[in-house]
Design a protein around this nucleic acid. Structure first.
Lengths: 257, 257
DNA sequence: GTCTCTATTTCGTGG
DNA sequence: CCACGAAGTAGAGAC
């Protein structure tokens, strides 16, 4: 690992070039300005930023606040470091799509260069597909005696999350949202239903939108279009899933403790 | 600025606590694992990562590749640093929504702490709102003798980008996309039109989708629903805008050179 | 505060 | 490779 405090511009140049050619992770604090041209185009005036080059050539420039990088390059075809008019330039180019990021540093506060090894796996505990699978294998959590017919089935406008059958033999078309459902979710469901109604009589179809909460406009649209709303408790579904996984010896507890 | 190379766990603890309480930017390289619980929930096994605490309490954990952070906290209510069972813990809590991020570091490779000042302004040269404004002040770029009525106007399902009037006195409802428009853009426009048709007879309404390109399904859906498609050349609009800005002495050239 | 929409969205998945 | 949809989306703007 290399740590350089307050380097002059030539030392910074050499360090960055070495770090890039050896495909290491580089984290620097710079006083810089940035220009970007590609899918969009932007200018960022001078200021202090965190500058990162990752081992795959991804470049990130972060301001001192906020989640999002102010400028970036997801991965690069090449990165060129040079000195022009006494200023350090880092130019990161991506070819598909063609994009150019030009970082012009007036001052380099610090550079850290390291070879990072990260093989640790990442587990999402509950996303929409998992919620869908938990409901598919436990359709009664929706509060009725449903049976599962199909999961994530393509019909023409898109994918229906879940098909169930209710006690009266009707086809239940389920759209699932992991977070509060907005009017868009209702529209999506209506779209599926109108497509399905070519094959199934409308009276045999029950569209249900499943989510922890619903926006007001979603509630209005649902009422208007005959869409049922069913709330779910994601934490409850999570505990059901955990139980299932534990039963199969795949529990997350393995990883958590 | 403080730079610490390979600190022991107690020195790391003290440095982090100082950095947090003084609201500085902290960038560290850690061998850590991460647990997240909140809107979602996830587990990240041990590995080397870039760890950042920003001056507003935002926390980012980056793996050595890729654009996105693997874990994060957009801004925090509080951050607590402690040692438990000989391991460094950084716990970042956000209250709305309630989310907890727990970083457990087994090894600290480096810590850099600095007070960054970044007042530099950020200019987007061409985003959708700018394209919309350029068309609004030059509606003839769409190839007809349009006049502008209104911009970014709320109707119930949402916001219409642009209202124009054509030579036959019809109300032109414009939806603008900066990049290739997909079928969703058509749907959005249809949504507005069906809402407007309560007030304006359908024959007096002209929905137009404006974008540099259109996906095949967008073209099909547009034809089916009577939506017109008009291509724009964003670069051409950009030169129009530049001319307008220069005329007003607000040209970007001020900033670019 | 809620809702809506854009984004150099990114990221995955499916065709 | 393109097209579509989800995201712990974030961030901005309007009401």
């Amino acid at each position: 690992m290399i740590i350089i405090n307050n380097p002059n511009i030539n030392d910074a140049l050499i360090a960055l070039r070495n770090g890039i050619s050896s495909k290491n992770t580089i984290v620097a604090l710079l006083h810089c300005r940035v220009r970007y041209e590609g899918r969009g185009s932007s200018v960022l005036e001078y200021g202090d930023r965190i500058f990162i080059i990752k081992q795959d050539g991804a470049v990130l420039i972060h301001r001192p606040t906020g989640y999002s990088p102010v400028n970036w390059q997801p991965s690069t075809s090449y990165i060129r470091v040079s000195i022009e008019n006494g200023l350090l330039h880092i130019i990161a180019v991506r070819n598909k799509p063609r994009e150019i990021l030009d970082v012009e540093a007036k001052k380099v506060y610090s550079i850290v260069i390291a070879s990072l090894t990260d093989t640790g796996r990442f587990y999402e505990v509950m996303d929409e597909s998992i919620i869908r699978d938990v409901i598919a294998s436990n359709p009664k959590v929706l509060g009725e005696n449903f049976t599962t017919i199909d999961v994530e089935k393509k019909i023409e406008p898109g994918f229906v999350d879940l098909y169930l059958r209710d006690e009266k033999g009707r086809l239940v078309v389920v759209e699932i949202k992991r977070v509060k459902a907005s009017v868009n979710a209702v529209k999506q469901l209506i779209k599926y239903v109108s497509s399905l109604s070519k094959y199934v009589p409308r009276g045999k179809l029950r569209p249900i939108l499943v989510a922890p909460e619903f926006t007001e406009s979603a509630i209005v649209a649902a009422k208007k279009h005959g869409v049922e709303l069913k709330s779910i408790d994601v934490l409850k579904l999570e505990s059901i899933r955990r139980r299932e996984l534990e039963k199969r010896g795949e529990g997350l507890l393995r990883y958590i403790r």
